[in-house]
Design a protein around this nucleic acid. Sequence first.
DNA 1: ACTCCACAGGAAGCGAGGGAAA
DNA 2: TTTCCCTCGCTTCCTGTGGAGT
Length: 497
Amino acid sequence: MSNEEPGPSDSASVDIDSSQDFDVDLDDVVLEDEEEENQGLFDDLLSGEPIFENKEVLRPSYTPHELPHRKEQINKMATILVAALRGETPSNILIYGKTGTGKTASAKFVSQELESTSQKYRVPCDVEYINCEVTDTQYRVLAQLANKFIEENERLIDEWLADLRELRESALEDTSAFDDADFDSIDAVDDRIAELEADKAEFETVPMTGWPTDRVYSVFFDAVDYHERVVVIMLDEIDKLVEKSGDDTLYNLSRMNSELANSRVSIMGISNDLKFTDFLDPRVKSSLGEEEIVFPPYDANQLRDILQHRSDVAFKADALTDDVIPLCAAFAAQEHGDARRALDLLRTAGELAERDQSELVDEDHVRQAQDKIELDRVVEVVRTLPTQSKIVLFSIILLEKNGVHNVNTGEVYNIYKRLCEEIDADVLTQRRVTDLISELDMLGIVNAVVVSKGRYGRTKEISLSVPIEETEAVLLSDSRLGDIEDVQPFVQARFDN
DNA sequence: ACTCCACAGGAAGCGAGGGAAA
DNA sequence: TTTCCCTCGCTTCCTGTGGAGT
């Protein structure tokens, strides 16, 4: 404990010092060279009456303290999880609902409440959150959990050690300190301290990769079972985990309880996909789905409520015209009642209004925001695509630009091969290109439908579902694809065949 | 009723690249 | 150093298939 204190504060002070030095340097430069021009660069922007009061509450990362229209689901979760506070194992829970229906927000809210209540009543209870879209293999889930619990155990041991040392100090002066404690001599306390320190030294963090999975499992198991507690493991986007690496993880987690001596584990799965349990082993399915909670999509009225709630905090009074919120709600309701989308729209509309130096957010800004969000998403997705996918997408664009709609896989592959030769990239097999096209389909960049043309075989009919000019521009900004100068020959070759 | 196209997409497995342990 | 282990992108080999043409 005592040796920790100087450490962080030391390094922190160094950081501050160095950054201050840096600032001073910068200021000097600016003052010398460009005083005039820089004056007022931000002043103009600042002088416009800002529309926002607190933009943070419109961001997806913000967890509200109140979730309108989700009382029922939250109460149900709480009634199930309250068992944890009595030291019993809560039933496993499965939560279903489309994106932006408040699943994650509600679950996080409940788990925060659970943890704070458990502290109040001094019942050991931990909630661990894992997003399975990021952590999508058994190894990684177990490793992440293991490390979190090791960290938690170390923190606990430090706490206990501090208590014990305090007890030891006071006992040295007056043995009556042992009256309320579990120890009756200094030696006993010393033994316990030594024991805890040995335990702490034994913990080893799990590396990102390298270990056999069963070893990770046993480290995780020991870390959880280190002392008495109830553990709730929240697996967000659990369907992604099952899709990618099967149900082994869930099987292992759900049968843990029968082997744990001190602690109890309960799983809370959150899924976008109502049918993902179809792929599960029946045993896993029944144990996981002990309790199911469904989050229905919000309707336009509910979305309006939510937006109203947040906008009261987010915007200055009277910054919105009357039709802004209903319009955001209506747009988002079309997108299967996605509240995240609705908030995004509202925030972007506000930003656009701010950029216009307008004092009011109006209907027009919302419509612009609708387009902007979609375009931004596409640009970002396309920009970060791997090179091979970019080449495939570019092939599709070339065909589309030359008036060939509903292209099939074979045609795309032919153009793709020529492009690869041109820019000296590896040529992948058609099998692989099929997969890349499916990925583009899932990202919503193209639309690929399997159709049968009878005598003329079965293939995918592929069409672009994003604006062609902008997408092409993004692709050409890639250094490798930028080399392609004359594209005509590629498409021309197609008509020659 | 049967054929047969042009693929879709599953299964297995390879090899490079991350890393750990002996 | 060698030997394991996990992950990822990819290939090879394969079986499956809707429906126009016959």
